[in-house]
Amino acid sequence: MRTMSFDETIEDVLAQTMADDPRIILFGEDVQLFQANLYTQFGGRRIRDTPISEGAFLGAAITAAMAGMRPVVEVSLVDFLGVAMDALLNQASKLETFSGGKWKAPFVLRTTCGGGLGGGGQHQQSLWGWLSHIPGLTVVVPSTPADAGGLLFSALQHDGPVIYMTHKLFTDFWVENLGYLGRKTVDFDLPLAGMRGTVPEKWEPIPFGQAAIKRSGVDLTIISVGVGVHRTLEAAVMLEEEGIDTCVIDLRTVSPMDTAAICEAVSSTGRLLVVDEDYQGFGLSGELAAIILEAGINANYGRVCTEKTIPYSRELEAQTLPNKERIVEGAIELMDRS
């Protein structure tokens, strides 16, 4: 086993797969300097800076993939996908169906998501639920370096479009370049256990749609993804002191979802709390409730999500994004119901 940071993991997998597969090229805004090591190794033909034209370069990735390449496209923040949604909503997601199953576009869209750096409501959204709503897209949200590597390895072998989302708080690069920015006068609640960790000596693909049981428990199941997993694990320690034994599940991929693992875990505890940094309405948390209902599982249900536009104020931001206090409160409330 080796120890790596989240950023190093992604770079390591990209470097290895790009060395083995010349069809992979990487492009996006500022990638030559943001990915300076890959730019050094592979040069400007394979690591390309783009204009700020997400609609054009994301759309181009799809047909480049259809014509034999394996593009990795980087859009700095998921919020910026708003200007390029046609590529995902009407093109990439539809291709396989429209071609009668004969044509697929194997590309990876890498982007960052999530909040906690005081960046307000236009640079810190999660949006994995919004993206997963569209049939035909795979949406991956790793929460540890090992998962980040294994899932990226799978994404680069997958035969269709994959949206690979990295929470900003996991990466030293974004925490530094949007948070600290050379200052020592600001503090962030960083999910340290997700920023650095052991990874396999040799990368193996982690299949999509396979959740990870992070902690077993008999009283309550909490399902989360991304930084929420780490907030939940911290909350689980506090809940233990209250005598509540919590099972924690990390979905790892939002679409496809590991329905079997979800149903099994919720059946055994009879209680489900969803911790989702994405918006509460019409999203992942509601989808999980639907899965449980459809499976005929009788369970008490609650959720701790982002309920509104993320405020700029650091104090209000901390209250708006799911935090461990809100998770503990939600769990106790759920326990008290039955």
Binding site: Q32, L38, T40
Partner: peptide
């Protein structure tokens, strides 16, 4: 930044040495 950059510059597979030098020069001059 230098260690990782030099390691990348000397990795076995990848761009030609000319491309690598061009990248390094670009990174240093921007």
């Amino acid at each position: 930044l230098l260690g990782p950059l030099l390691r990348s510059a000397t990795r076995r597979k990848g761009g030609s040495s000319r491309e690598r030098i061009r990248s390094l020069t670009d990174i240093a001059t921007r």
